[in-house]
Design a protein around this nucleic acid. Structure first.
Length: 688
DNA sequence: GCAAGGTC
């Protein structure tokens, strides 16, 4: 029997379908589907893994953070452990029957390692040389058949490069995570994490926030006028635009402030062509969907759901060029219904459909595009928003350019020049379907050289320069991509991790006190881990391992020595690092004043992970409050008027946030004057 | 209870 191993179930099914010409049988082994068919007269079974089935970790004896000096971890050899037990046991039972094994995981570094792990686990490392490897760049019949008729061998050097990354990430991540957590006394549920990708990402947010708070606004002036002609008003601005010299601004303004009339100097018209947008890769998709006010992680989980249900293509891709074998016409044709009818028909009416191309072309997956038509009723509101975005973007990439007429007018007012512009869409082209991108039209009255216009209003505006903006989640993902941090599959998860560690809050994300304190400490004592260079350097080394110019051992050894130096210097500063972080954390955890002794009340976690509030003077003062264990809570600093306890804001899905007293025994609640009981009553009434 | 990377 032949065994084909794929990276995921979806690919396994597709490959079985292609190699068997549709004559395959699906069987479930427990909860794991496998696909059986006859290929070249031999019984064949295909299994889809779920990515990595092996994870690297330290031996159990190093599990106790308090008993192991983090510096010891540097020289511990990580172990491989099965992380997907169900799949692994199906794999080994299939391996008993198989006499030949074919690796058909994704054709990239991680795919090579995923395949190697599976073969090694099921057949032993002796079989690695014998395994056949299919190299394909898309799951299309031609490509799959080609790859299975020209099989190669596994590239163990490529797999070794991926393994090197695993080791380096684990050793640095675990050692620094433990060191920082121990130094600041944060153990158990509230540990502080450090990593090659998460820490530079957090540093981006923290440093942007520093720029914002250090920003000194600079005053400037603008002179703007409202002009009129034939009963139609239009705006004009002084040609100098932003004027930073107050004397100059006042001088110009005094010349024009009493003007009643202006004269048109000239009118210029030109046509602008806005090219359609390029196909969606993951980053641009998240950026666009981020405007629908969803978190990056939520967007990706909806996309995953749409993908597994067959509505859109694979959502994790860097590619921005449709592959040649994607049948654009057929895809458009399948969408020519409902709200997409008009755009789709227009595209189909073209003799040749041409698509825009982005600057990144890869061969692993196509850009994100719709694979089936669906309605809002089928998908529900939220899923439809994402699906609709993908469909409209896809159609836009095949549509016509948008043509815009831009009119520039110069007007003389008492010897000063003012400019105005008119914007009119001649033909909307792709914008008729990609309604997320809007050009604001501006109307001008009919004007020509020498025409007199009325000055309706003229003003000197006081302005201030603005600080740089915070990163949106989408903007952050784009910046991470630019810096080479993380991958298409992990960037959104990294951001989510920063939220769950309470390093950042709100959206757009802002650093918390602990997030800032952590970055301050790391930048001071372990700068390397906060910079994207660590990733680019690792990338270079991995490339050289794959090319046989370097060995895994050499890279890992050098990395270990570097970490040893870092930890040794940090060890000397341990007390100071701990103090800095701990004091920020303490400040962050203060939720109000104790009504009994007026010391700080702290948000804390018990040994078992339960959150509650207690007095900072504990055990001297025993005041404490239980908290709801689920859902997000924030503390505004407000105090309950009835019992003087702090108020908290509860956020639950699908409901409006509500502010209630944290004291479950608050007399205000029983009386129904704004406590949670009263609120509950309202909600029940509202929903029935 | 540590990372980051696949995948669900």
């Amino acid at each position: 029997m032949r065994l084909i191993i794929c990276e995921k179930d979806n690919a396994a099914k597709r490959i079985s379908d292609i190699l068997s010409n549709g004559h395959f049988k699906t069987e479930k082994r427990g909860r794991v589907p496998v696909y059986l068919f006859v290929w070249e007269n031999e019984r064949t079974v295909t299994l889809g893994l779920r990515g990595h089935i092996i994870n690297m970790d330290f031996p159990k004896s190093y599990n106790n953070w308090s008993a192991v000096d983090p510096i010891e971890l540097i020289d511990v050899k990580p172990e491989r452990m099965v992380s997907a037990k169900g799949i692994a046991s199906v794999l080994s039972s299939l391996a008993k029957e198989a006499d030949r094994v074919y690796v058909a995981t994704d054709y990239d570094r991680e795919g090579e390692l995923i395949g190697k792990e599976a073969v090694e686990y099921a057949f032993g490392s002796g079989q690695l040389e014998k395994a056949m490897r299919a190299h394909f760049s898309s799951l299309t019949p031609d490509e799959i058949r080609r790859s299975f008729s020209s099989l190669g061998r596994m590239d163990l050097h490529l797999a070794s490069a991926a393994e090197t990354r695993q080791i380096v990430d684990l050793v640095w991540g675990a050692a620094l995570t433990r060191f920082i957590s121990l130094a600041s006394g944060r153990l158990g549920h509230d540990f502080l994490s450090v990593g090659r990708v998460q820490s530079p990402t957090l540093a981006l947010i923290v440093n942007r926030e520093k720029e914002i708070s250090a920003f000194v606004p600079e005053p400037y002036f603008r002179i703007e006028a409202l002009l009129g002609r034939d009963g139609l008003d239009f705006e004009a601005a002084h040609v100098e635009g932003d004027i930073f010299d107050q004397g100059k601004a006042k001088e110009i303004f005094s010349k024009v402030k009493d003007a009643k009339e202006g004269v048109i100097i000239d009118v210029k018209e030109r046509e602008r062509t806005d090219r359609p947008p390029v196909p969606f890769n993951t980053t641009q998709f998240i950026r666009a969907a981020n405007n629908l006010s969803l978190s990056a992680a939520r967007i990706m989980s909806i996309a995953e759901d749409l993908y597994t249900n067959g509505y859109i293509s694979y959502p994790r891709t860097d590619n921005t060029v449709y592959p040649r074998d994607l049948d654009l016409r057929k895809t458009v044709d399948s969408l020519a219904k409902g709200p997409y009818m008009e755009a789709a028909s227009h595209i189909l009416s073209k003799e040749k459909i041409t698509a825009t191309r982005g600057s990144k072309q890869t061969t692993d997956h196509p850009p994100i595009y719709p694979t089936a038509f669906a309605t809002k009723a089928e998908l529900g509101r939220e899923r439809f928003k994402i699906y609709d975005l993908v469909v409209r973007r896809f159609l836009a990439t095949l549509h016509d350019p948008c043509r815009v007429k831009v009119t520039s007018v110069r007007t003389d007012i008492n010897g000063e020049t003012f400019t105005s512009s008119g914007i009119r869409i001649i033909s909307p082209g792709w914008r008729s379907v990609y309604t997320m991108s809007v050009v604001k039209e501006k109307e001008l009255p009919p004007l020509e050289k020498g025409v007199r216009v009325k000055v309706e209003e003229i003003s000197l505006l006081d302005k201030e320069t603005k600080p740089p903006r915070r990163f949106s989640q989408g903007g952050l993902i784009q910046e991470m991509e630019r810096l080479g941090l993380g991958t298409k599959s992990t960037r959104h998860e990294i951001i989510q991790k920063l939220y769950s560690r309470r390093y950042i809050e709100e959206s757009p994300p802002r650093p918390t006190l602990s997030g800032s304190a952590l970055i301050d400490a790391l930048e001071k004592h372990a700068r390397m881990i906060t910079e994207p260079d660590m990733t680019s350097r690792l990338e270079r080394d991995m490339e050289r391992i794959a090319n046989r110019e370097l060995t895994q051992d050499a890279v890992v050894m050098e990395s270990r020595e570097m970490l040893r130096k870092v930890l040794r210097t940090m060890e000397k500063e341990k007390a100071a690092i701990g103090r800095d972080i701990a004091s920020a954390l303490k400040e962050q955890d203060v939720v109000g004043k104790c009504p009994r002794c007026s010391n700080d009340l702290l948000l804390v976690r018990s040994k078992w992970g339960k959150r509650y509030v207690r007095c900072s003077r504990f055990p001297g003062c025993s005041k404490s409050y239980p908290l709801p264990q689920k859902g997000k809570i924030t503390f505004s600093g407000n105090i309950c008027e009835v019992c003087r306890s702090p108020m908290m804001t509860l956020y639950s899905r699908g409901k409006r946030p509500r502010e209630v007293c944290i004291n479950p025994a608050c007399p205000g609640k029983r009386a129904g004057t704004g406590g949670s009981e009263g609120e509950k009553g309202k909600n029940i009434k509202g929903s029935s």
